[in-house]
Design a protein around this nucleic acid. Structure first.
Lengths: 145, 145
DNA sequence: TAATTTTTGATTGTAAACAATTAAATTTAT
DNA sequence: ATAAATTTAATTGTTTACAATCAAAAATTA
């Protein structure tokens, strides 16, 4: 494993995919994918966000978000409405079913609890802290976000 | 941010994508994507691996690897040869251009150095340690890997 | 041996992810 | 005011990523 072990990015790549997989089963009850769930979390926090604002929060661009939001619209969870003031902007509004889904979603965020079950609290909080630090470092070196 | 902040998986999701983006520019000189680069790393470490063995090392299944390997074959970096002993198995051999590419690849693993430049050595090693621990925890809860 | 199960990779279909480009509207500068 | 630059989202094309299924071969069991 000499080569792969020298790649500092590799564990992050695998961990991210395994986490998405861990969310898959719990999210089936909402018929959402993991990225769709994250978009819904944004909107439950603040309804009526512009596409660009969702993109800022999730570090995703319109090439990813536009089709994803159209799928959420097709599921009748959101409405996409072009702003009248600035017709470049598209606001994303939760529909009633979209708002209602939040109650079902409260259990999802504990999907990783089993994974961390036998972890020391200290390690969990340290990892969280270092991941946030890394996120900031990466963003400050990123052109896009 | 109340909702997103409660999602323990979110930072891993963003970090992984920002890391892939950070590798994009350095990897352009090899005309490789990040996942293709990881496959090549496996093969530079051990030539002639079966598809399933690459999948184990990278936690990827054949639905991802088969088309990726066909692209590497189209680039003349690998050959795919069905085993004579067990005709279900397909061995992946490096071509001469595939082997030669390794010399150009030595610089790639330092693509994140700038990101970690002002990090304390202690934090870096702690993060690496905790990520490997998390990887093991996730794998032990995974059906697939 | 014959039937069943497992292994292995390929295929199909859907959904992200993102670079590059386009189009339209707004803002800024001249 | 008008030209140039910026913002914003959509579009296009390529590449992952993965579930589900299939087919063939091999290994196991009856």
């Amino acid at each position: 494993m000499a080569n792969l072990e020298k790649e500092p990015g590799f564990p992050f790549y695998v961990v991210s995919r395994l986490i998405s997989q861990a969310y898959r089963e719990p999210l089936e009850s909402l018929s959402l994918t993991y990225p769709q769930y994250l978009v819904m979390l944004c909107l439950w926090e603040e309804d009526g966000l512009m596409v660009s604002q969702i993109g800022e929060r999730l570090s995703l661009d319109s090439g990813t978000l536009t089709p994803l939001l159209k799928r959420l619209e097709a599921m009748n969870l959101v409405k996409r409405e072009r702003s009248e003031k600035d017709e470049r902007k598209v606001g994303i509004q939760l529909t009633y079913p979209g708002k209602s889904l939040q109650s079902k979603a409260s259990l999802i965020s504990s999907s990783l609890d089993a994974v961390f079950a036998n972890w020391a609290e200290k390690d969990k909080s340290k990892l969280e802290q270092l991941m946030n630090k890394l996120l900031e470092s990466l963003k400050s070196h990123s052109q896009k976000f």
